[in-house]
Amino acid sequence: MILRRQFLSAAALGAGTLFVAPGLALATVPTERRFVFIIQRGAADGLDILRPTGDPAFAGLRGQLIDDAATGTKLDGMFTLHPALAEVGKMYGRRQALFVHAVASPYRDRSHFDGQNVLETGGTQPYAVRDGWLNRLVTLLPRSSDAAIAIAATVPIALRGSVQVASFAPSALPDAADDLMTRVTALYDADPQLHPAWAAALETKGLAAQTGAGQDPASLGRLTASFLTKPNGPRIAMLETLGWDTHNAQKGRLANQLKSLDAMLAAMRDGLGAAWATTTVLVATEFGRTVAVNGTGGTDHGTGSVAMLVGGGVEGGRVVADWPGLAPASLYQARDLRPTTSLDALIAGATAESLGLDPARVRRELFAPANGERPMSGLIRA
């Protein structure tokens, strides 16, 4: 989870904040299958990302945000993809992208921090579970190493737990001189606490060498791909994206966010090459946004949103939705998209099918028993 001051700084900056303090976390497991989780911190507006243009109430509620709807990719009779997601639209056309709409975690209030905690831990209440579901997922796989890598200033909650995690963050600063690195290595060499940590940091730095690691979207996508394609490299990754809290001027801000996400996913796909065929990327947020537009051209904290799966192995080219409708009587608490699908069930099904694990065991180990639905199935091609 990001630090509070990092989150508030991103919110204050507004448009273009997707890769302020970017985060990427990775875990090493001996498999050629790959799974990537991208969290959209700030509550991404699923009704704008995947627009239900076939719902008779939608245009009246969202007209001022969607005058470019005709340029988006029309997925079916109900849904139109935001025009900024051009590459994702192409993946959908190649049956490599799938969307799940009206989806939510068990959380039903509207605090970013509480919602992210529930999403990342797999609990039913904030702070009831101490470790993260992604860390627990790693424990279900045979591992050649107990180490995981977080490319971030702090390790996100989803990857905290019994598996050890080191950290690496792309920096705009110049690399330290070789002489300084040698001196620090010598200084820590005899220290029983600092030496292992320093050695792990150097190993992680070596993995990222010559990748051109930067903080722009395409660079982070390429960096992720470079880690995931190393012969003995990690096969599980997590990326953090910020800036999705669009209380005002949503039209331009969200378009910029989605262009960045689109560029990152395209760069990751291209960088993975043949490995894209065995890769699944899940994109999800802590909750959605209000159905109605507020007085400043934005939307406020809501409930149901959209999640997406992309990857060469995804059984894509479709939208999975038990659509509740946007008529006043159909809304959650008279203001939000009513969630009809469990995000936990989606995560359990996607991770199990992506990594060749038993879905019932994954559901049992990753999420609280009270979380509800059975794992979704048929998400990944056999």
Rank of each mutant, 00 (worst) to 15 (best):
4 R>T: 03
5 R>Q: 10
7 F>P: 00
8 L>R: 01
11 A>I: 00
18 L>E: 11
32 E>C: 13
40 Q>S: 15
41 R>C: 08
44 A>W: 09
49 I>C: 12
50 L>T: 13
52 P>A: 15
71 T>R: 15
78 M>K: 06
79 F>G: 02
80 T>Y: 05
87 E>P: 07
89 G>V: 05
91 M>K: 13
104 A>R: 01
107 Y>A: 11
112 H>D: 01
113 F>E: 02
114 D>W: 00
123 G>E: 00
127 Y>A: 05
128 A>R: 10
128 A>Y: 04
131 D>M: 02
134 L>S: 03
146 D>M: 10
153 A>C: 01
162 S>E: 15
162 S>H: 15
180 L>C: 09
184 V>W: 13
185 T>Q: 04
185 T>F: 12
186 A>W: 01
194 L>M: 05
200 A>P: 08
209 A>H: 08
217 P>L: 07
223 L>Y: 02
225 A>Y: 10
226 S>A: 15
227 F>C: 12
229 T>N: 13
259 K>Y: 13
262 D>G: 11
268 M>Y: 06
268 M>C: 13
274 A>H: 15
275 A>W: 14
276 W>A: 14
279 T>C: 14
288 G>I: 08
293 V>D: 02
309 L>T: 01
310 V>C: 13
319 V>E: 07
320 V>T: 04
322 D>L: 06
324 P>S: 13
326 L>I: 06
327 A>K: 11
330 S>W: 02
333 Q>R: 14
335 R>F: 08
341 T>M: 05
341 T>C: 00
357 L>V: 09
360 A>G: 14
372 G>F: 11
375 P>K: 09
375 P>M: 02
375 P>H: 09
380 I>F: 02
